[in-house]
Every structure is written in structure tokens, then in C-alpha cells.
């Protein structure tokens, strides 16, 4: 699936073993978005010409040249990526930071908001951070994904017992307020 972090387009995919990967969303061959591609086992294949990439990002098969062993220089851009408490975290630069703990919470849904992450944080009276704990009765918590200067995605979690439809509708309302649309 596609994602965008600080202006970088990312392809996030899960191999058959469950391992998640975050790569630059460009096939090194013709620049097609790899997020349009398809996963078979532990490889990601580009939708355009079927070039296949291993879990480490190296090209391992080119269908138009079936007898060629692709040179090691052909490889996708890879980023470090970890999964923790049902949230996938991506780091564009090497980091020792641990994933924030979201134990006890359950994912609700991800909303893209036409506003910068800073604006979303300040709407809730907080400084921008990887996660915002909103202090509601349902413990609604947002993992904030900054996309670019005008967009972010809020991955919302709440108490496992919370009614997710209620949480979802509350989030829709907050988004309308943040974006300045008539509520």
C-alpha cells in the first residue's frame, strides 16, 4: 500500500511470512509506483514489467530476461520499518528510537487530514509528536504521520471496549473543524 512521509512516497508491503517492509515508491527500472505491485511469497513484483525484488530490496528476477542474474546494483530504496501494537512505524533515517507503546489500545481507522501535523496537534492543544493521547473517555490516541506541508494522516486507536463507530464519527467531526469546513 502507498504512504507518504515528510514528502517521500513510500510503498509498504507485507510478505507471506508477515514481515513488513517500507521502500521508496519507485521501481528502479521505469519509476512505476511499487505500491501498485503485487506480493508473492517474500518478493514484491512491479506491476509494469514484473521486475521482482527480494525482502532486502535487491532485484532478483527480470521476466523479459529470464536467464539473466540481475546485477546487485539494481535495488529498491529501503527504509527501516517495525511493527508494534498493530501500528507500522517507518524511519526515513537510521534511528535508535523505540516504537511508542500503544499496548491495550485497538486500531480504529486512518484518516487523511488536509492540514499539517502541527495544526492537528495544536487543535488538540498539544505539541506535535509521534503520538497524541487525547485524554478522552475512550482513550482516543492518534499516531500522527506527517505527509507534507498541507497533509497528514491520523492513525486512530482507542480502548478495546470503545464503540469504533462512535470514535470514527467523532474523528470525522474533528477533521471538519480542523479543515475549517462547516460542521
Amino acid at each position: 500500500m502507498p504512504g507518504r512521509i515528510d514528502g517521500q512516497d513510500i510503498a509498504i508491503w507485507r510478505g507471506a511470512s508477515g514481515q513488513v517492509h517500507a521502500w521508496g515508491d519507485r521501481c528502479p527500472h521505469r519509476g512505476m509506483r511499487l505500491s501498485h505491485g503485487f506480493v508473492r511469497g517474500e518478493t514484491l513484483a512491479c506491476i509494469y514489467h514484473g521486475w521482482q525484488y527480494d525482502a532486502d530490496g535487491g532485484c532478483d528476477h527480470i521476466p523479459a530476461h529470464p536467464n539473466l542474474v540481475p546485477p546487485k546494483t539494481i535495488c529498491a530504496t529501503t527504509y527501516s520499518c517495525a511493527e508494534s501494537d498493530d501500528v507500522i512505524w517507518v524511519a526515513l533515517r537510521p534511528t535508535d528510537e523505540k516504537c511508542p507503546s500503544l499496548a491495550g489500545l485497538r486500531g480504529v481507522r486512518s484518516l487523511t487530514i488536509d492540514a499539517a501535523a502541527e495544526q492537528v496537534a495544536s487543535h488538540f492543544g498539544q505539541a506535535v509528536n509521534a503520538i497524541l493521547r487525547l485524554g478522552t473517555a475512550d482513550n482516543i490516541t492518534l499516531a500522527l504521520q506527517p505527509m507534507d506541508a498541507d497533509h497528514c494522516t491520523a492513525h486512530a486507536l482507542s480502548d478495546a471496549r470503545a464503540d469504533r463507530t462512535d470514535v470514527s464519527r467523532w474523528l470525522e467531526h474533528q477533521r471538519r473543524v480542523i479543515e475549517g469546513q462547516p460542521a
Binding site: F38, V39, R40, A45, H61, P66, N67
Partner: peptide
């Protein structure tokens, strides 16, 4: 609108 390629078996490699 393309179909889901992962639903079809991988073509055989002739290597």
C-alpha cells in the same frame, strides 16, 4: 483496472 496478479500462480521460471 487490473486484476489481482497474486491470485494467479507465478509463471514458471525457465532459468
Amino acid at each position: 483496472i487490473h486484476r489481482l496478479h497474486e491470485l494467479a500462480p507465478a509463471p514458471e521460471r525457465s532459468r
